[in-house]
């Protein structure tokens, strides 16, 4: 009992630990309380996503800069495989040569970037927050290292895709053509159907964008949460009897390993799904009903 009490005073309890880890380092200094507040910005999400994006694209640029049409090096061959994969998907989904010049690189960016942001989950959950707390001297400093486990991060991407959908809708069909489509599709061209059509289109765009962002967010958020719970399991071991404690320690080891391995799959899959949906939505913007 005495040891348990000691642990509780020196370390936060489970609920506090998890909540603290889910708090962003933002401009207000404490976790956001209202659902939507555009006066606040999450420094950690912006920092990590920008740094990862820059690092990822820098690596790609290093390879692309010295690309040769002769025998490619390993890095170039790997990048070529990636680009061919994305390029073929783009070709199959977006039937517009001109648009693909931007859409295909965009899809590559999405894939690489989302993959890197998701991969931040592989770092031990307490590593960067601990370093940050040591660096700032504030043991309660907030830091979240997975930008895609922040709804702002993923919805930022999906809203970006939505804006591009609007752009291509207007570019391909013309502003008039697109507005016409908004009121005449999907049910048909009839004055009585104008309103249902428009409502349907609004729902469609909203659902697409929200599900696009939420899917990635949900996966990464759940992954992060599970890593936190696994970490809690390992942290609890000093407070238990030696036998129970070692079981928990073993449990941390086994579940942590398994979840990390499984998470590798999720990280790549979610990055791929996000890229594919980006292409699909942009492809739909090119098709008239």
């Amino acid at each position: 009992m005495a040891t348990g009490h000691e642990a509780a005073t020196s370390a936060p309890n489970a609920g506090e630990y998890v909540l603290h880890h889910l708090g962003n380092l933002n401009s207000s200094g404490h976790p956001q309380t209202s659902m939507v507040d555009f006066s606040i910005i999450n420094y950690d999400t912006v920092f990590f996503s920008s740094v990862l994006g820059v690092i990822g694209l820098f690596l790609l640029w290093r390879v692309a800069r010295v690309a040769t049409s002769g025998v490619p090096g390993r890095a170039q061959a790997a990048l070529e495989i990636l680009i061919e994969m994305v390029g073929n998907q783009a070709k199959a989904i977006v039937h517009n040569e001109q648009s693909r010049k931007f859409v295909a690189p965009l899809a590559l960016t999405v894939f690489v970037w989302v993959f890197l942001m998701n991969s931040m989950d592989f770092l031990p959950v307490d590593l960067l927050p601990f370093l940050w707390q040591t660096l700032t001297g504030n043991p309660h400093a907030y830091l979240r290292v997975v930008p895609t486990a922040d709804l702002n991060g993923t919805l930022g991407l999906s809203v970006g895709v939505l804006l591009l959908c609007f752009f291509y809708n207007i570019k391909i069909k013309g502003l008039g053509g697109w507005i016409h489509e908004l009121f005449t599709a999907p049910f048909g061209n009839h004055p009585l159907l104008y309103l249902p059509n428009f409502v349907m289109q609004l729902i469609e765009f909203t659902a697409k964008t929200v599900s696009h962002g939420m899917r990635l967010f949900g996966n990464m958020y759940a992954g992060e949460l599970l890593f936190l719970l696994i970490a809690l399991m390992g942290m609890a071991f000093p407070s238990m009897s030696p036998f129970g404690g070692s079981l928990l320690w073993l449990g941390h080891l086994v579940t942590g390993t398994l979840w990390a391995l499984f998470h590798i799959f999720i990280v790549v899959l979610q990055a791929f799904i996000f890229m594919m949906l980006t292409l699909v939505y942009l492809g739909q913007a090119h098709e008239s009903h």
Partner: peptide, 25 residues
């Protein structure tokens, strides 16, 4: 929780995509 990070993310996204379009692809 939604906040201005969303807007920052959109901007970063577009910049990165434009970079890829110009220098990587």
């Amino acid at each position: 929780y939604l906040n201005a990070t969303l807007l920052a993310q959109i901007t970063v996204f577009i910049i990165l995509a434009l970079f890829t379009m110009k220098y990587v692809w």
